[in-house]
Amino acid sequence: MTDETTLAPLPWGRDVIESILPHRDPFVWVSRVVAIEPGQSITAELDVPADLDIFRGHFPDHPVLPGVIIMEALAQAASIAMLQAPDLRGHIGFLAGIDGAKFRRQVAPGETVTLTGRIVKSSRRLVVAEVEASVAGEVCATATQKYVLA
């Protein structure tokens, strides 16, 4: 992570996201960052392509973005926020736990999911975030996620 990213104007696109996260296609689940308080909170978005290959099997007659992908998108968004804390730059966050996950609304092809995360605990070893995914203001999923830093 370079100092240039901290100066980059919002929204941050794929180039900035990939300078922070180790993920690459086909497993980057954040399209853009629209607001961030480094080490504290984030609002990001995921554009869900209608032609996403995963919809061929989940489910052919009723395509729905899998809940595990929503959880991964939330983890990636929260990781961007935590990895922008000056003392955590250059680390990698590994998802270590998901507590109290609730799925309230399905996500369909073509929708844009708003991903929010608030870091509630942070140390050099463990980070805990409260996360929420929504579409057009309607909550899709919530959880408390834990990440181990390496």
Rank of each mutant, 00 (worst) to 15 (best):
L83D: 00
V131E: 09
H23T: 08
V135F: 11
V127N: 10
V28N: 06
A78H: 00
A75K: 14
G39T: 04
Q106G: 07
A129T: 09
V120T: 15
G57A: 12
L115D: 09
D15T: 14
K121E: 14
T112I: 03
V30H: 13
P26K: 06
P22L: 04
V131A: 10
G67T: 00
F94V: 13
V107D: 01
R56M: 04
S134L: 03
L115N: 06
A77L: 05
I42W: 06
R56L: 09
P86C: 04
I54Q: 06
G67N: 04
P38W: 13
L7Y: 04
A44K: 11
A35W: 09
A85L: 12
L88H: 14
L52P: 02
P49R: 00
D25A: 07
E45K: 12
A85V: 04
T112Q: 04
L46D: 10
A133I: 15
V107K: 05
V113S: 10
E132G: 02
V131P: 05
R24I: 01
Q106K: 13
Q40G: 13
E138Y: 02
D87L: 13
I70Y: 05
L10M: 05
T142H: 09
V120W: 02
S19F: 07
V34S: 13
A35R: 15
V120H: 00
D47E: 11
T112S: 02
A78K: 00
E45L: 05
G93S: 02
Q84K: 14
G39S: 04
V107L: 01
G137Q: 04
A143C: 00
A141T: 08
V135L: 08
A129M: 13
A78G: 03
I80W: 12
I17G: 12
F55C: 13
A141M: 07
I119C: 09
V68D: 03
A136P: 00
G90M: 04
R56A: 12
W29N: 05
D99T: 07
G137T: 06
G90V: 01
Q40W: 13
